[in-house]
Design a protein around this nucleic acid. Structure first.
Length: 470
DNA sequence: CTAGGGTTAACT
DNA sequence: AGTTAACCCTAG
């Protein structure tokens, strides 16, 4: 049985051997009893492998960028710096290349702004603060300045498109790979093999003393201590196959995936972790999409009584959005339950099974039913900086509900009015100066955190207010 | 998605 | 009651 130490040696050797296919390595990583967490040397080998795969596919993506960053945490090779800067630039410029000819802002421009924001304002800025601060090279600083300048300067963007940033990035990665490989030296197995090959068998076998054997043992020990990370040196590795830790399973699955990509597609695959992050960031903009149906609180008495809004439907998607908004409203306002049960339930929603009302699966606050009102209840109660009166929403809802009873046709939910704070106002002011009034969507996307409670329309309305009496 | 008109609610 | 900021609706 192969132990974790030996498994790590083997995998390191295979990873570093370009003749071994990614697919094979991927399979092996799943069956080998690897130590956990992965030793730095092995992690480095994995990252080198990923970078090499990117290089062979001529793919420069934020995945590449991420690999470089992680590699930098493991080994401080100077060659990583230019590679990181070049890849960051290429990741930013790439969206511009597919732009149609147009004088106004195109999707490509918007993507470029997004990329500048994500890579340079978030990722690189984070880098400056983090342990990977060493990556903050002069080249990176200059590149950052240039990317930020390009946001305002379409001519500069044109120039960036013409520049061969992709070639530069690929070349920098190639150089970096070479350097890091050199710095890492041979793999443990190779080094060990060298020592073994250097054995004088005759002497070893023929000798009557233990001298040569002891000498060999010493050599191996030296090799172990010089070449091995502390984890690998461990006397006993406790391998628990069923308990694969997160970092390892993540790395492994990435490797397996990347090997699949090479085998199946062979093309450029740009999706990655940053893509996921991207999605997270843009949630704010996507949730507003179906807002009309979702938030249109006008629900007629007939609709509710007819039973066509029965929440017990097999497919949650089939549940009417209006109905969902009511249910979400209920589920997110537990304090209001009585109120609703006593009044609305009795009068209007007798067809709704009361047990299903408690089921979160159906009444889950879905994206489309996401509102500020509910947000404030769930995430902000008690921590609002804006001197919010806790009774605000209660009185508000009460009045809404009673008016609904009086005239269900007019049952319109409205968000609680939230005063704009200085930060929001200043951010909006600067953003309008930067991107221009009217690009509300873009402005929101560039400041997802600050404007997380504001829709594009809110930004527009606020700007109208701010500029009204200028 | 945005602009612009309309409505609501907080404040004076 | 009037004013205003925040929010809603909807055509294009």
């Amino acid at each position: 049985m192969v132990g974790p130490v030996v498994a790590a040696w083997i995998l390191e050797f295979l990873l570093r051997n370009p003749d071994v296919s990614d697919a094979l390595v991927g399979e092996l990583t799943l069956v080998l009893p690897l130590p956990s967490p992965l030793p730095p040397r092995l992690s480095s080998a994995l990252l080198l492998r990923r970078l090499a795969a990117d290089l062979s596919r001529r793919s420069v993506s934020s995945r590449t960028l991420h690999s470089l960053e992680r590699l930098h945490r493991l080994r401080h090779s100077p060659s990583l710096l230019p590679a990181f800067a070049a890849v960051a630039v290429e990741c930013t410029v790439a969206p511009l290349r597919h732009r149609p000819l147009s004088s106004s802002f195109t999707d490509a421009d918007v993507e470029f702004f997004d990329a500048v924001n994500k890579i340079w304002n978030c990722q690189v800025a984070e880098l400056e603060r983090s342990e990977a601060a060493g990556l903050m090279s002069q080249a990176l600083r200059e590149a950052r300045r240039e990317m930020e300048a390009a946001v305002m300067d379409s001519a500069l963007r044109e120039e960036l498109v013409r520049r061969e940033t992709k070639e530069a990035a690929l070349e920098a990665v190639r150089v970096c790979l070479e350097e890091v490989r050199k710095e890492m030296g041979p793999t443990f197995l190779e080094a060990a093999a060298e020592v073994v090959v250097g054995w004088d068998r005759e002497e070893l076998v023929g000798s009557k003393t233990d001298g040569p054997l002891i000498a060999l043992g010493d050599k191996m020990r030296t090799l172990l201590s010089s070449r091995f990370d502390s984890v690998e040196r461990g006397v006993e590795m406790h391998h628990i196959p069923s308990k694969m830790d997160k970092s390892r399973s993540k790395l492994l699955s990435e490797l397996v995936q990347s090997s699949k990509r090479v085998n199946l597609s062979g093309g450029n695959v740009e999706e990655d972790r940053l893509g996921a992050l991207n999605q997270n960031l843009s949630i704010n903009s996507t949730i507003v999409k179906p807002k009309k149906e979702a938030f249109d609180g006008k629900i007629s008495n007939n609709e509710l009584q007819s039973g066509q809004l029965d929440p017990i439907q097999s497919d949650p998607k089939e549940v009417d959005q209006k109905h969902k908004s009511i249910l979400a409203y209920e589920s997110s306002c537990p304090d209001e339950k009585h109120l609703r049960c006593n009044s609305l339930d009795a009068n209007i929603t007798t067809n709704l099974d009361s047990t299903t009302m408690k089921k979160p699966s159906l009444v889950d606050r879905n994206a489309t039913a996401h509102t500020y009102e509910w947000d404030s209840f769930s995430t902000e109660s008690g921590q609002s900086p804006e001197t919010r009166k806790e009774t605000d929403y209660l009185s508000f809802k009460k009045s809404k509900i009673s008016s609904a009873l009086a005239d269900p046709e007019e049952f319109v939910l409205q968000r609680r009015k939230r005063k704009w704070n200085i930060l929001e106002e200043e951010t909006l002011r600067k953003a309008v100066a930067q991107y221009g009034a009217g690009n509300w969507k873009l402005i929101k996307r560039c400041h997802p955190e600050i404007f997380k409670r504001r829709s594009e329309v809110d930004l527009k309305d606020k700007w109208r207010n701010m500029s009204r009496y200028l």
